[in-house]
Design a protein around this nucleic acid. Sequence first.
RNA 1: GGGCGCUUAGCUCAGUUGGCUAGAGCGACUGGUUUACACCCAGUAGGUCAUAGGUUCGACCCCUAUAGCGCCCACCA
Length: 869
Amino acid sequence: MLEKAYTAKQFEDKIYKKWESHGSFKPSDAKKTFSIAMPPPNATGTLHLGHAIMLAIQDILIRYKRMDGYASLWLPGTDHAAIATQNKVEKVLAEQGISRHDLGRKKFLDEVKKFVANSQSTIRNQIRKMGSSCDWSHERYTLDDGLSEAVLEIFTRMYEDGLIYRGDRIVNWCPRCGSTLADDEVDYKEEKGKLYWLKYGPFSLATTRPETKLGDTAVAVHPKDKRYKKMIGKKYMIPGVLGDFEIVVVADEAVDPEFGSGAIKVTPAHSFTDFDIAKRHGVPLKKIIDEEGRMMKNCGKYAGMTTLECRKAILEDMDKMGLLEKTEDYNHQLSVCYRCGTSVEPLTSKQWFIDVNKKIKRLGGKTLKEKSIEVVKDGSVKILPNRFNKTYYHWMENLRDWCVSRQIWWGHRIPVYYCEDCNEMMVSVQAPKKCTKCHKSNLRQDEDTLDTWFSSGLWTFSTLGWPKQTEDLKRFHPTSVMETGYDILFFWVARMILMTTYALNEIPFKTVYLHGLVRTKTGEKMSKSKPETCIDPLDMIQKYGADALRLSLVIGSSPGNDIRLYEEKIAGYRNFVNKIWNSARFVLMNIEEKDYNANEKDVLNSELSKTDKWILTRLNEVIEDTTKKLEKYALSDAGTEIYDFLWGEFCDWYLEMSKVNKNPKVLSFVLKKILVLLHPFTPFVTEVVWENLNQKNLLINEPWPKKNKDMLFKKEKSEIKIVKDIITNIRALRVESNVDVTRKIKAVIYAGKHEGLMKKKSTIISRMANLGELEILKSGSKLKNALMSVVEDVEIFLPLEGLMDIDKERKRMQKEITEMKNNIDFIEKKLANDGFVNKAPKEVVAKERARREDLIARLEKLRKQLESL
RNA sequence: GGGCGCUUAGCUCAGUUGGCUAGAGCGACUGGUUUACACCCAGUAGGUCAUAGGUUCGACCCCUAUAGCGCCCACCA
């Protein structure tokens, strides 16, 4: 006997262990396969709702496919998250007054490893709490030996293909992290700044960064700008705070003649635009800001100052020299590091880059960019929702060479070795023992590590054993779905496509499902600084259960759209979970053990009432619909449909009707099918109930149901609809007329052609409408002093002599009649319209006609009743 | 500056390729210890589907403009 209410925390851990110990998460050996590489959470901390939603969605997909007979692999893992992790550990050490340099590379890395091991075990535990049916025997970590080998292998190959090169180029530099950042790792923040107008030799020009004047080597103007035409190509000496310096005037399309004076100072070493201009015109670079964000030695008295200090000092000096013309308020976008928020310093530096514009043989003469765009354009990779295609193309088309070297310690060290004796450079997976040129063994490995997205870009295949040609790789790659937040489409999804098409000449996944961000009830971003609206998934699991949390994240959310989450919503789904439990409780109380395994044959061979036929019909329709919806990734729709079926039909009607007349085989059969359908959504409660039905196998391994045509009963479906409508009408009538609900009143039904049906279902009607007496006749004269309603051609009377207010009832009927008339008018207008009758599909017209007939017949009956009152 | 999304009942959201003068949950209100469930049951109220045009026999749905909110991208110094 089940407890009165379901308490999730009493069962969830036990059930999860049961699945694990049965090896239920391991892919079967079926031929058809389905696979998802779980986006690896950063190994830096704990799970948040962003993880919870991804786990819920992916688990639904995996469980569904597993039940549907696919060998399904859901591969879990973690990411070393280079900069994020290093920053975190540095912060912890800083509290003890230690810097990473105090410890040295090796000891510092040991600290990081300890930290990671700890958070990994937290994460594993939390993934389990969500009910995620991932295959732990396949768990991977981006720094595993195998995965590291894949990273070095790709690096080496790309180098050999000429795709990876070392260049002295301008990069985004975070002075706090002490490292480069990729273009998309830079955030922009609106800043109230100033625009300074400088007297600049023969020019007058505006800048937001006067301190960079020390690094200027040119002035650029628009080629068509008449004001400066004569000056193009000439050199000028410009008076400056450190004496005069020379610039050359160049003409470049990048200059906007409308802005400022139409002339811009060019600081090639510290601005992306200027760098490009300088490159186009062969203008020299002059680097003046170092990697700590300080002015370099070549800046005279300003050397050693931070850029901001220097800006202040240089403005004062320029003002004294009369070089500062005016200052205006100016808002602009300040670029900051996405990890730590520090203002990013563009500077030139020797770094490793991936050339995205080089045509290569391996890709049939296409560039990395072109190939990445192609696989989405030709539909090999489908993005859901597909409006993100456009965003993806735009990003890819504008992608610049990807800077992959980072000056941090935590990560995959670049497999490049330099000979200290002859300066030869070697790139190889295995560290070389001797210099290939001078054969001496005085070698030094490059200090830098790789961008964290370099390794995660390989995630779908490095986790399956590549570069070895493993069985897993053959079976499960390309993966079926990549499910992740739309906020990392560029960071990760795009990079996986780029890296995988290069490495394997194969797509990494067939479908990309992008979920939205989880927000508060009022639509704000959840942040830990606002604990009152910031929901911790683990708290919610503790309080309402994982099943309830999963539903609250999945139902009402669609790909690409943000979702609002709040506690009442989760509580609501907890109620639904309890409803599942109680429906099962009722069924268990009404069947015997021999019915637990009733199959389709048993059901069809049993004596089926109209009610049974109706619920079987609906069940099979629901099976068909939800399966279609799941195939379309319409998870929310699928979930809603089963929710409504269980609560609104099975519980509200079928179980209630079973209290009069039950068929234990049908009760058992339908309940079990519902459990199967619900299992991907609410795995825990369904498995617990399943257990109580003494099933030999676990529900997680139960096959997904298919529609059975022998269980579709069209006639009974519409008959039961009439019965339901009659009951609903009687209930409404008595409540509207303030008749005490508990009072067992009498009803008279003139059933017309439905006499047989009514007589068969009279007990059910009596019970569900709480009637004391029910008289069923084929027809008769209108009853006075009675409430009345009509369903199809069935007339219902509630004779309430003495209890009813005739005036009130007249008004009520009058109102109903008026509404009906309006309705009929509306339909008639439509039918009188030739355009409609001729152009609308036949079914639509026929439907309207039938509706009109029905309404007219009912109207007539109501009218007569009104007259007789 | 470019691109995208959203605007439906008090709140949170559904509404499939145009065809029930629009649905659910929560909240409100009325009333209920009936063979599971008060985490429940029965019922009621509440919407010119942001605005203005257009296409169509027919628009919440398609098109165009407008407004408000939000997001992404961008080297206007």
